[in-house]
Amino acid sequence: MLNNNKTNKRFGWLELFGPSALLVIIVLIMGTLAVTGAFPAEPTAGSILADYVAATGGREAYDRIENRVVEGKLVIEGAGITLSGTIVTAKPNLSYTLFQSDAIGTIEKGTDGSLVWEKNTMSGPQIVEGPMREFTLREGTMDKLAYWNELYSGAELDGSMEVEGRDCHKVLLKPETGEPVTLYFDKETHLALRQDITVETQMGTVPVESLISDYREVDGLLLPYQVSVGNLGQKRVITTASVKHNVDLPADRFAVPADVLALLEPAEE
């Protein structure tokens, strides 16, 4: 299902809406996935989230992780474009991401926990503001689901739905502002199999649907090694190659680049 690459080859000038969409995807990957909570007898949103945390290693295992370096690749299906990528995250919400390919150059995004920025070969450096900044800081929080009650004003169980042939709980996470995040948790394994989110980008409101799979154990945590993202009529598959935790990162790993900081200065006359 995730490897259907014989159709939907994109033509024309829309091909490279990719970078904008990729930045949204990157944020979603950074935040994926971890949960905590109580264990009530009746299924509630909180208990479902807690089950997820327990199933993926437990809160203590998450607490031991200070940062994460993920190497992998992103394939734009049907287009024949593959980007290699590195995603570096650290608690609470620091991040730096680099994706690159010969075809479209580099795509970077980062935050020092306050200023959110991005730059790619086409756009040059940009400061991310407004709803997209809020989205990035919230959804990009490392292992966001482990701390969901600090990031969201509430969670709500919204029935059941089948995802990839699996019976799932549908849970809404409601932020203070913006659209809720919808997560689908397998009723048997408690793993998250899908996430739906609506993102307010500079270009407009974009729905993004992500299928999450291939969980593997790393340092006591179960982490998804594949995320398939559909939006803007395209499917992109992100595959993790390696995960490292508690890496000795350079001190300036999350520093805002100089050309981004230059945007804060008054324009030259």
């Binding site: 000038w13 091909e15 490279l16 479209i104 086409m122 756009s123």
Partner: peptide
């Protein structure tokens, strides 16, 4: 003949 929209936007 055209190409990638973000190039034009940039």
């Amino acid at each position: 003949g055209g190409g990638m929209a973000p190039i034009a936007m940039g």
